[in-house]
Measured scan of single mutants.
Amino acid sequence: TTYYDVLGVKPNATQEELKKAYRKLALKYHPDKNPNEGEKFKQISQAYEVLSDAKKRELYDKGGE
Rank of each mutant, 00 (worst) to 15 (best):
T1Q: 14
T1P: 14
T1G: 13
T1Y: 14
T1V: 11
T2Y: 10
T2A: 07
T2E: 07
T2S: 13
T2M: 06
T2N: 13
Y3Q: 02
Y3C: 06
Y3D: 01
Y3M: 05
Y3R: 01
Y3P: 05
Y3F: 08
Y3T: 01
Y3H: 06
Y4T: 01
Y4I: 01
Y4Q: 00
Y4F: 02
Y4A: 01
Y4M: 01
D5M: 07
D5P: 01
D5N: 06
D5C: 07
D5H: 07
D5T: 07
V6P: 00
V6D: 05
V6Y: 07
V6G: 01
V6S: 03
V6T: 07
V6E: 04
V6R: 04
L7M: 05
L7C: 01
L7I: 04
L7W: 00
L7Q: 00
L7E: 00
L7N: 00
G8E: 07
G8L: 05
G8Q: 07
G8C: 07
G8I: 02
V9Q: 02
V9L: 07
V9R: 00
V9A: 03
V9F: 00
K10V: 07
K10I: 04
K10W: 07
K10R: 11
K10N: 10
K10Q: 12
K10A: 13
K10G: 10
K10F: 08
K10E: 11
K10Y: 08
K10L: 11
P11W: 10
P11Y: 08
P11G: 05
P11N: 07
P11V: 09
P11F: 11
P11A: 11
P11K: 10
P11S: 12
P11C: 10
N12W: 13
N12K: 05
N12Q: 09
N12T: 15
N12Y: 09
N12A: 06
N12H: 10
N12M: 06
N12L: 06
A13N: 01
A13R: 00
A13E: 01
A13P: 02
A13V: 11
T14N: 07
T14R: 05
T14D: 05
Q15S: 11
Q15F: 14
Q15E: 10
Q15T: 10
Q15R: 08
Q15Y: 12
E16H: 08
E16A: 11
E16P: 06
E16D: 12
E16F: 05
E16K: 10
E17Q: 09
E17V: 05
E17N: 03
E17S: 05
E17H: 04
E17C: 05
L18M: 07
L18I: 15
L18W: 00
L18T: 01
K19G: 08
K19E: 15
K19F: 14
K19Y: 13
K20C: 12
K20E: 15
K20Y: 09
K20Q: 14
K20F: 09
A21S: 05
A21M: 04
A21V: 05
Y22T: 01
Y22I: 02
Y22D: 00
Y22L: 04
Y22S: 01
R23N: 15
R23V: 15
R23K: 13
R23D: 15
R23H: 15
R23C: 15
K24N: 13
K24R: 13
K24W: 08
K24T: 10
K24M: 12
K24E: 15
K24Y: 11
L25Y: 03
L25T: 02
L25V: 03
L25N: 02
A26Q: 10
A26P: 00
A26D: 03
L27K: 12
L27Y: 12
L27D: 15
L27V: 12
L27P: 04
L27W: 08
L27C: 12
L27R: 12
L27A: 14
K28I: 13
K28N: 06
K28L: 15
K28M: 14
K28E: 12
K28Q: 15
K28Y: 09
K28T: 09
Y29P: 01
Y29I: 05
Y29L: 06
Y29S: 03
Y29H: 06
Y29D: 02
Y29V: 04
Y29K: 01
Y29G: 01
Y29R: 01
Y29W: 06
H30Y: 05
H30C: 09
H30D: 12
H30N: 11
H30T: 06
P31K: 06
P31F: 06
P31N: 08
P31T: 07
P31G: 10
P31S: 06
D32Q: 08
D32T: 12
D32W: 06
D32Y: 07
D32I: 10
D32M: 11
K33E: 10
K33L: 15
K33F: 15
K33H: 14
K33Y: 15
K33G: 08
K33S: 12
N34A: 12
N34L: 06
N34K: 06
N34F: 09
N34V: 07
N34R: 07
P35R: 08
P35S: 08
P35E: 08
N36F: 11
N36A: 13
N36C: 11
E37P: 05
E37Y: 15
E37M: 14
E37L: 08
E37R: 05
E37S: 11
E37A: 11
E37Q: 11
G38C: 13
G38R: 14
G38Q: 13
G38T: 14
G38M: 15
E39T: 06
E39H: 08
E39W: 12
E39L: 09
K40I: 12
K40F: 10
K40H: 11
K40L: 12
K40G: 04
K40E: 05
K40Y: 11
F41C: 05
F41S: 03
F41W: 15
F41V: 03
F41D: 01
F41Y: 09
K42L: 13
K42F: 09
K42S: 07
K42D: 08
K42A: 13
K42M: 10
K42W: 12
K42R: 15
K42Q: 13
Q43W: 09
Q43L: 13
Q43R: 08
Q43I: 11
Q43T: 09
Q43G: 06
Q43F: 07
Q43C: 11
I44R: 00
I44G: 01
I44Q: 01
I44H: 00
I44Y: 03
I44V: 08
I44M: 04
S45G: 06
S45Q: 15
S45E: 15
S45A: 12
S45P: 00
S45I: 14
S45H: 14
S45C: 14
S45R: 14
Q46P: 01
Q46T: 10
Q46M: 13
Q46D: 13
A47G: 01
A47I: 06
A47M: 04
A47F: 02
A47T: 01
A47Q: 00
Y48S: 01
Y48P: 00
Y48H: 02
Y48V: 02
Y48E: 01
Y48G: 02
E49S: 10
E49D: 11
E49I: 08
E49Y: 12
E49V: 05
V50A: 06
V50I: 11
V50L: 06
V50T: 10
V50S: 04
V50D: 03
V50N: 04
L51T: 01
L51M: 01
L51H: 00
L51Q: 00
L51G: 00
S52L: 06
S52D: 02
S52Y: 06
S52P: 00
S52E: 03
S52H: 07
S52C: 08
D53I: 04
D53Y: 02
D53S: 06
D53N: 07
D53W: 02
D53H: 05
A54L: 12
A54H: 11
A54Q: 10
A54W: 09
A54D: 10
K55I: 12
K55M: 10
K55P: 05
K55Q: 10
K55R: 12
K55Y: 12
K55E: 10
K55H: 11
K55F: 10
K55C: 13
K55W: 08
K56D: 06
K56S: 13
R57G: 03
R57F: 02
R57C: 03
R57Y: 02
R57I: 02
R57E: 02
R57H: 02
R57V: 02
R57W: 02
E58G: 06
E58C: 10
E58R: 06
E58Q: 10
E58F: 10
E58V: 05
E58N: 09
L59Y: 09
L59D: 13
L59S: 11
L59H: 07
L59A: 14
Y60R: 03
Y60H: 04
Y60L: 04
Y60M: 04
Y60D: 03
Y60T: 03
D61T: 02
D61P: 04
D61A: 02
D61Q: 03
D61M: 02
D61W: 02
K62C: 10
K62Q: 13
K62F: 07
K62M: 09
K62L: 10
K62H: 11
K62R: 12
K62I: 08
K62V: 07
K62T: 09
K62E: 07
G63P: 07
G63W: 14
G63L: 14
G63T: 13
G63A: 13
G63S: 12
G63F: 15
G64D: 13
G64T: 14
G64M: 15
G64L: 15
G64A: 14
E65V: 13
E65C: 14
E65N: 12
E65I: 14
E65F: 14
E65G: 13
E65S: 12
E65D: 12
E65P: 11
